[in-house]
Amino acid sequence: MTEGCLELNYDIPANDFLHAGEASSSVKKMLNQLGVDPDKVKKTAISMYEAEINAVIHADGGAAHIEIWKDKVVIKICDKGPGIPNVELAMQEGYTTAPDHVRDMGFGAGMGLPNMKRYADSLDIDTAVGKGTTVTITVFLK
């Protein structure tokens, strides 16, 4: 355990839309308890939720690793999914590759990455086609 930093790990279950978002809502609860400014809590919760859902929709789940520092929150969501062939395209609002049955449930509207970008202070996408994607979201608390 790194000094001054709280590390959390969550599994993101595959194809489980009912429980998708549990990790981000548990992180949200903790940030509130830590006394983090409500506005920053919201930024963190929404961007993490989008990343979490993306892992469920596109990559058979994955893992979330969260570091909470006094001045920032770093969220890493890793999956072993298909990867994103064209990140620039994926960043466009409304662009989606989600299958119909997912869209029918109200997910996969092509707002995931754009929302992440909107709410995160920094967003890093490390992806390789056929290998997987790691999204790193940073929200500064100060």
């Binding site: 355990m1 001054g4 930093c5 709280l6 959390l8 903790m30 509130n32 308890q33 830590l34 006394g35 983090v36 409500p38 909470i68 520092w69 006094k70 608390l141």
Partner: peptide
């Protein structure tokens, strides 16, 4: 106004420490 009654500590560093112990 917001009533942060669930907050663990006023100091975020102490709060993080407490959260770690709590976990």
């Amino acid at each position: 106004q917001y009533k942060p009654v669930l907050k663990l500590d006023d100091d975020i560093e102490k709060a993080i420490k407490k959260m770690e112990i709590l976990q």
